[in-house]
Computed example of a mutant assay.
Amino acid sequence: MTITQLSYVLAVAENQNFTKAAQKCFVTQPTLSMQIQKLEDQLDVLIFDRSKKPIELTEVGKKIVTQARNIVNESYRIQDIVDQEKGFIGGEFKLGIIPTVMPTLLPMFLNNFVKKYPKVKLKIEELTTEEIITRINDGHLDAAIAATPLENDTIKERVLYFEPFVAYVPQNHRLRDKKTLETSDLEIEDMLLLEDGHCFRDGVINLCKAFKSHNDDKFQLESGSIETLVKLSNEGLGMTLMPYLHTLDLNEKDKKNLHYFSEPSPAREVSLIYHKSELKMQIIEAMQDVISGVIRGAIAFQNVQIISPISK
Rank of each mutant, 00 (worst) to 15 (best):
L46C: 04
T4I: 15
I291P: 05
Q42A: 10
T183Y: 02
L46M: 08
Q42E: 15
I291H: 05
F26A: 10
F301T: 10
S277L: 06
K178Y: 06
E235T: 05
Q5E: 14
N234D: 12
F211I: 14
S225P: 00
R296H: 04
N251A: 04
V9S: 08
G238T: 09
K94E: 09
V82M: 08
V120F: 03
G90Y: 01
L160G: 03
Y161W: 10
I124T: 09
I155V: 13
H140P: 00
E195K: 14
T66M: 10
L248C: 06
R176H: 10
T148P: 08
T2P: 01
F93W: 02
K119S: 09
R174Y: 05
A68H: 06
Q35P: 00
F113C: 11
L122D: 00
K20T: 08
A21W: 00
T247C: 11
E131R: 15
N112R: 12
I89S: 03
R296Q: 12
D80F: 03
L194P: 03
K115H: 09
N112I: 13
D153I: 12
R296N: 12
M191R: 02
S233P: 00
T31A: 11
L248Q: 12
Y168I: 11
L43D: 06
V9L: 07
I310Y: 00
N215R: 10
L95M: 09
A68Q: 05
P149T: 15
E252V: 06
K115C: 03
L105W: 04
